[in-house]
Amino acid sequence: MATAFIRTIILYLLVSTTLRVMGKRQIGELSSSEFVITMLFSELAATPMGNPDAPLAYGIIPVLTLLALEILISSLFLKSRRIRKFAVGKTSILIENGKINQEEMKRIRLTLDELIEEIRLKNFINISHVKYAILESNGELSVFPFGQEQAPSRSDVGKKDDNTFLPHTVISDGVLIENEIERLGKSSAEINDELKRRGIASHKDVFLMQIDEQGTIFLVPKEGKK
């Protein structure tokens, strides 16, 4: 029993570290080779986890081999566009200048219903509004409408001001986040003064406090505290 427990911890740490080394991408953004490797990891790690007769090395060695191969292959991708194209695939232009590329749809075995569905998922009700539809190598469809179908931007309506400011979380669940406070050019004392002005005795009573670059404060006190 204890062996299975320790083995599980070792394999969990190994697979987590391996996936971390591979990169930060989400499952939906994995390329085909990355997806295959991720699936294999779980299988390989599970074998010695559930079978106490198999040495742990039977799980560790394949996982490390896959990690090394993945790193070596991605280095090759950086060096050769042709290899990358072969392994990851290329993007497919399904609609070009409003014209559906039927040949390309046939090649990638995508039906018209699937294309229309994907376009609807991108919030375009009518396929005739789409100027470009590109199937990316990760399977995601990028859709670009004709100019007249695009929502106007603030500059289109003559508003040139930029009112987008990144909020920094300075208190999270009662804990002061020092590096975020420093990034705003403030100190913990200033934050505590601000809290006192708002009738809150300590940062421990705050669930969330965010301050953006313009100084706008968003404050959520902890429930049951004032």
């Binding site: 490390l64 790193i71 070596l72 280095s75």
Partner: peptide, 8 residues
């Protein structure tokens, strides 16, 4: 990273 992979 490539060197690490080769080392592995």
């Amino acid at each position: 990273e490539t060197f690490v992979a080769i080392a592995i």
